[in-house]
C-alpha cells in the first residue's frame, strides 16, 4: 500500500501583522508578508508524516493563486513535500469558495489522490468551506476538524475530529477529504536537505488549458457570492476608566456599577 496524498495550500497575508490605521480607517499592509495559511502548515506536516509512515507514498501540494504563490510552494518543498502544482490563470481570479473548490477539484481529477488534506480554514477568507466543497465536486466523503489520524490503510482511515464539546472518532472510506486543526501535530522547520530540494524542484504550473473545466464555473463568473463592500469593523466605543485610590476602591466602584446596570 502506498498513499497518493494531495494537500491544498493557500497563500495568505499574515493577518497577525495586519493593522487598521485609526486615522484613515484602512488596512495598513506595508511590510505584511505573504505566508502559507497557518492551518495548511499542519496539513502539509501531516501528509509528510504519513509518507514517512507508509512507504512509497507521495505528497503533492496544490495551490490556486497568482504567480507569487510559487515562493510559498518552495517553502512547502523545504519541509518535505515531494511535488508542487500551481493553478494560475486570470480566468480563476475572483473565485468564491464554490469556484475555488471547483477548480481545485478539476486539478484533483488529474492528480487522482487517495487522500486530500486541507487546512481547517484560511485566515483571510475565513470561511472553512473549500474543503467540503472539493469533497462534493469529487463525490468524496469528508471529515472536518481532524485532530488525529489514528489508522490508515488502502481503504479506510480512522480519525478523531474536534468538536465544541469533545472528540468524535470516525471511520471514513478513502478516497476522502480531511480538514485539519492545529492540535494534529507540530510542523517541522525546513531542513538543509529540504532547502536544497526546494531549490532543485520546479513548480509545475497549470493554466485553464491544462484542466477540463466549464468556463462558466471559473473565477468571478463562476462564483454565486460576490463581495459588494469591504469596510473597517465598527469601533466599539471605549467606556469609562475606573478611578480610585487603591484596588479595593476600584473593585467596589465597578461592582456597584454592575449592580446598577443589573449585570450581576
Amino acid at each position: 500500500m502506498a498513499l497518493n496524498i494531495v494537500v491544498c495550500m493557500k497563500q495568505v497575508p499574515d493577518t497577525t501583522e495586519v493593522r487598521i490605521n485609526p486615522e484613515t480607517n484602512t488596512l495598513i499592509r506595508d511590510g505584511v508578508d505573504s505566508i502559507i495559511n497557518p492551518f495548511d502548515t499542519y496539513a502539509i506536516e501531516e501528509a509528510v508524516r504519513l509518507c514517512e509512515r507508509v512507504e512509497g507514498s507521495k505528497t503533492t501540494i496544490l495551490s490556486m493563486g497568482p504567480p507569487q504563490v510559487e515562493s510559498s510552494l518552495k517553502d512547502a518543498l523545504s519541509v518535505g513535500a515531494d511535488e508542487v502544482v500551481l493553478l494560475s490563470d486570470r480566468e480563476f481570479a475572483g473565485a468564491d469558495t464554490w469556484a475555488t473548490s471547483y477548480t481545485l477539484a478539476a486539478a484533483m481529477k488529474k492528480l487522482k489522490p487517495d487522500l486530500i488534506i486541507t487546512g481547517k480554514q484560511a485566515i483571510d477568507g475565513d470561511t472553512a468551506q473549500v474543503g467540503p466543497g472539493i469533497a462534493v465536486h469529487l463525490d468524496m466523503p469528508q471529515v472536518c476538524y481532524v485532530s488525529k489520524i489514528r489508522e490508515i490503510n488502502d481503504e479506510v482511515a480512522i480519525v478523531e475530529r474536534l468538536l465544541e464539546d469533545g472528540h468524535e472518532v470516525v471511520e471514513v472510506k478513502l478516497p476522502a477529504v480531511l480538514t485539519v486543526v492545529k492540535e494534529i501535530n507540530e510542523p517541522r522547520l525546513p531542513s538543509l536537505k529540504g532547502k536544497m530540494k526546494a531549490k532543485k524542484t520546479a513548480v509545475t504550473v497549470w493554466t485553464n488549458d491544462d484542466l477540463d473545466t466549464d468556463p462558466e464555473c471559473l473565477g468571478l463568473t463562476g462564483s454565486p457570492t460576490q463581495v459588494s463592500k469591504i469596510f473597517s469593523p465598527p469601533k466599539r466605543g471605549g467606556g469609562e476608566m475606573i478611578d480610585g485610590e487603591n484596588a479595593q476602591e476600584k473593585a467596589e466602584t465597578v461592582v456597584a456599577k454592575l449592580k446598577e446596570l443589573q449585570v450581576i
Partner: peptide, 13 residues
C-alpha cells in the same frame, strides 16, 4: 468579518 476580524465584508448572491 474576514481577515481575522480586521475587515468586514458585505456579500451578495
Amino acid at each position: 468579518p474576514a481577515f481575522g476580524g480586521n475587515i468586514m465584508a458585505t456579500i451578495l448572491t
